[in-house]
């Protein structure tokens, strides 16, 4: 129990540090940037802005105050779960981001399924046939997967499966068929790291004493592999997932744009293009929150599957 509490506490500290440093940096960057967000806003409709208009808007968004005051006010509002409202759409930022969350989570889940299938099959292939030609294939799949730009892979998939063969919808969201191409794209982009890791873990697991013992007991090769070795090798993958949740959220952004998927990534990119600062600030906060919470869940899961840690025999 004490271990659990200390894990939760250290993750909370991490969340505080991450969010305060990052939000402060973006606040300062916004301030030192030559372009004035207020003037950007006024020039949108090509109407000549008067000095009075500018002053009025500056007051409204409190851009006339010192940066530390602005930052302090933002922090205070955040503590009340108020992330401000969008400059462009005037809607509350938190509502805008949260309404996009389910689409992103759905796509990420689809990507995870593909990722899981790819890493299990190619990782196992590489480990079982270590040094032979299936291992060679597994290695090159990982190598090419790590080198191909995900948006280009997506474009190729759209070209062949949607435009040429007419099998799957091009973009948007709705039916299960809409999930196929974006999930494959995301899964392939994430898989190489996991394929290599699983292969290495599996090779060392296959040499460990308890596998030797299972062999001595006369268990079949397949039984040893799938019931014993693979299960033992999957635990480190859980930790790996915690570490790569960040690149998953990053990677999904490009794929959402490519497939016009109405998720958080699509929202942030359009907000960046319109320089909608409150949305960008809120997004950083929420991504930071998601990353830390995921890692916290992974920590606790690890505690469940590996009780040695709880007894203090191993440090996280």
């Amino acid at each position: 129990m004490r271990k659990t509490l200390s894990i939760v506490a250290s993750r909370l500290v991490q969340l505080l540090i991450m969010v305060s440093v990052l939000s402060f940096v973006t606040f300062v960057l916004m301030k030192v940037t030559p372009g004035d967000p207020i003037r950007d806003l006024l020039n949108v409709d090509d109407v000549v802005a008067t000095k009075a208009d500018e002053e009025k808007l500056k007051k409204e968004y409190e851009f006339d105050q010192p940066i530390l005051v602005q930052y302090g006010k933002w922090i205070l509002n955040v503590m009340h779960f108020d992330l401000g409202e969008s400059i462009i759409s005037k809607r509350p930022v938190i509502e805008m981001i949260v309404s996009r969350l389910p689409a992103t989570i759905a796509l990420t889940t689809g990507g995870m399924v593909v990722l899981f299938l790819l890493s299990i099959s190619f990782g196992t292939l590489g480990a079982v046939y270590e040094g032979r030609w299936p291992d060679f294939i597994s290695r090159w799949v990982a190598m090419l997967g790590a080198s191909i730009p995900s948006f280009w892979l997506g474009l190729l998939l759209i070209y062949f499966f949607s435009l040429k063969l007419n099998l799957l919808p091009v973009m948007g969201k709705g039916t299960l068929a809409h999930f196929v191409l974006p999930s494959i794209t995301l899964g392939v982009a994430m898989a190489p790291m996991y394929i290599r890791l699983l292969r290495e873990r599996l090779i060392s697991t296959l040499q460990s004493p308890y596998i030797e013992a299972a062999r001595a007991r006369g268990l079949t090769k397949e039984r040893i592999l799938f019931l014993h070795a693979l299960r033992g090798s999957l635990i480190p993958l859980i930790t790996m997932f915690g570490l790569s949740i960040g690149s998953l959220i990053g990677g999904v952004t490009v794929i959402e744009i490519l497939f016009s998927w109405p998720g958080m990534g699509e929202l942030i990119v359009s907000s960046v293009k319109q320089r909608d600062y409150p949305v960008i600030q809120g997004y950083i906060l929420i991504v930071g929150f998601l990353v830390v919470i995921t890692n916290l869940i992974v920590d606790l899961l690890y505690l469940v599957v590996n009780p040695q840690i709880k007894q203090g025999k191993e440090t996280v």
């Binding site: 991450m18 960040g246 959220i249 990053g250 990677g251 942030i268 950083i284």
Partner: peptide, 16 residues
């Protein structure tokens, strides 16, 4: 531990 892709988006977004 913050995603570098998102951080780059945020910084590029603030700077233009």
């Amino acid at each position: 531990s913050f995603p570098d892709f998102i951080l780059a988006i945020a910084i590029a977004g603030m700077l233009g």
